[in-house]
Design a protein around this nucleic acid. Structure first.
Length: 454
RNA sequence: UCGGGAGUAGCUCAGCUGGUUAGAGCGGGUGACUGUUAAUCACUAGGUCGGGGGUUCGAGUCCCUCCUCCCGAGCCA
């Protein structure tokens, strides 16, 4: 669909020299131009930036797959086209046809010698200029900020991490069985839930697919769910979103050591795949990849009590029984080169469904994976309580409504087995792997305490 | 929710102990330039100093209040 032409507006509408967007020349994506050296091709995209030098214009053209410099010589095109190109605003939508030329001066290695330029829409003055901007302004313009190189790199790595995660779990024999988003009650009593009207009653947005995953694991053995989760906590930190994506594998007959093995192998395979396929994106983000490359080494497994003792010797005032503060996590992970697995936290600070450690009854068979470089917890999981009466009592002790959990208790009545799993927060994993300061850039449209627009 | 910080041109910021007509760079517009890489150079337009109230001869500047955003804590993935 072409925008209506305003005859009074400009030269731009007059320079259209091709009758349609389906052009006679082969239309290619910028990421593929290296396969068309010497050929005349058509690119469709947007004007990323422009520089001029008298009788030639350098148009940076982007099409989502990459950016290429298209060069227009005054002698090669008619005067109206040359003049229109000179005044074409940033982010105008365009179709350019020209010859692909190898050029050592180009970062891409190739340039396009322009023969024709068609303007689909002359953009209004674009708010994001190729200069510095503040985070608040960029977040307000997130729908446009997505067009920038840096955001492309991050969101491509996000997609790679998601693909790598799914490929890993599929390869391990785990079946995708997604959990619902509307839920009747809390999965974990502690966290604040978003309420929503569900016809004549209230419902809540899920904060974890785990309970449903346990049902699926009893049906299929090894399963995972992958979807958005919601936390209505008033957390304002660089690690928190109110809507975030989580992948949660869960398996029957999987006990704590197996859970830790699975988490470690999964994270390693994700990191290796990003290092293998997203080198250029990591480079653009100026990510130091040395810490990522060390993830091929085994991840240390640290007992909670040993971690507390270690923290105390490093000057923390943490006491046995406390959860780690943000500083504690940072100090602890700085002692290691790889992610670490901290296991067997006190039961009192963990959710009701965690299974107790038979050897140390005050502790749970649970594990958190803490990323290095101060990125904190990226995985939390553990073995689930599989005894009917113990679970029943735990639900009651946490003041949770038993009737809402009757189906969950059924899983302990009909062939209960030891089982467990974990959840990995996608955005935290992306922030760590990309080396970002804040998770808000790791998701296309972040939802935070004070931001729901755009 | 608590503790700190910030709101001045489209953007990034300067503006001193209150003083006359509020500045710069970038971006926009106009012009110059045949290899620019956040191009450069010249000229030019652009402001309810976050909103409201107060103190004062006089407020961008001081006080009160509200709003928005940033950083950190708690909680968590």
């Amino acid at each position: 669909m072409r925008a209506p032409v305003d005859a009074s507006r400009s030269d731009a509408s007059r320079i259209a020299s091709t009758p349609s967007h389906e052009c006679s020349m082969p239309t290619v994506h910028i990421e593929d131009v290296h396969r068309h050296e010497g050929e005349t091709v058509t690119l469709r995209g947007w004007l990323y930036n422009r520089r001029s030098s008298g009788k030639l214009h350098f148009l940076q053209v982007r099409d989502g797959s990459g950016v290429i410099q298209a060069v227009m010589f005054k002698g090669d095109v008619d005067e109206a086209m040359f003049d229109a190109a000179r005044r074409l605003p940033q982010e105008s939508s365009i179709i350019v046809t020209g010859t692909v030329k190898r050029d050592e001066r180009s970062p891409l290695g190739y340039e396009l010698g322009i023969q024709t330029l068609e303007v689909l829409q002359e953009a209004e003055e674009y708010p994001i200029s190729p200069k510095e901007h503040g985070v608040a302004f960029l977040m307000e313009n997130r729908h446009l900020w997505m067009r920038s190189r840096r955001q492309h790199a991050i969101l491509r790595i996000r997609a790679e991490i998601i693909a790598a995660t799914r490929d890993f779990l599929d390869g391990e024999g785990y079946l995708l069985v997604d959990a619902p988003i509307f839920t009747p009650a809390a999965c974990e009593g502690t966290t604040t839930l978003f309420e929503t009207q569900y016809f004549s009653r209230m419902a809540y947005l899920t904060q974890s697919g785990q309970l449903y995953n346990e049902a699926a694991a009893m049906a299929f053995g090894r399963v995972y769910c992958f979807g958005p989760t919601f936390r209505a906590e008033k957390s304002k930190t660089r690690r928190h979103l109110t809507e975030f994506w989580m992948v949660e594998p869960e398996a029957a007959f999987l006990e704590l050591d197996g859970i830790m093995d699975l988490a470690e192998r999964m994270v390693r395979s994700i990191v290796e795949r990003v290092l293998e396929r997203r080198q250029s994106e990591l480079r653009l983000l100026e990510r130091d990849i040395a810490p990522l490359e060390r993830c091929t080494e085994p991840f240390p497994r640290v007992d909670y009590a040993d971690a507390v003792a270690q923290l105390q010797s490093l000057g923390s005032d943490i006491q046995y029984g406390d959860d780690f503060g943000a500083d504690d996590e940072t100090i602890l992970t700085q002692q290691y080169d790889t992610p670490i697995l901290v296991h067997r936290y006190p039961r009192d600070i963990k959710a009701f469904y965690m299974k107790g450690d038979p050897e140390r009854p005050d502790r749970a068979l649970c594990v958190d994976m803490l990323a290095p470089e101060g990125y904190g917890e990226i995985i939390g999981g553990g073995q689930r309580e599989d005894d009917y009466q113990t679970l029943h009592d735990a639900i009651a002790a946490h003041d949770l409504p038993l009737e809402a959990f009757s189906w969950y208790l059924d899983l302990r009545r009909y062939g209960s087995v030891p089982h467990g799993g974990f959840g990995m927060g996608i955005e935290r994993a992306v922030a760590w792997i990309c080396g970002l300061h804040h998770v808000r850039e790791t998701i296309p449209f972040p939802r935070m305490l004070d931001r729901i627009i755009p």
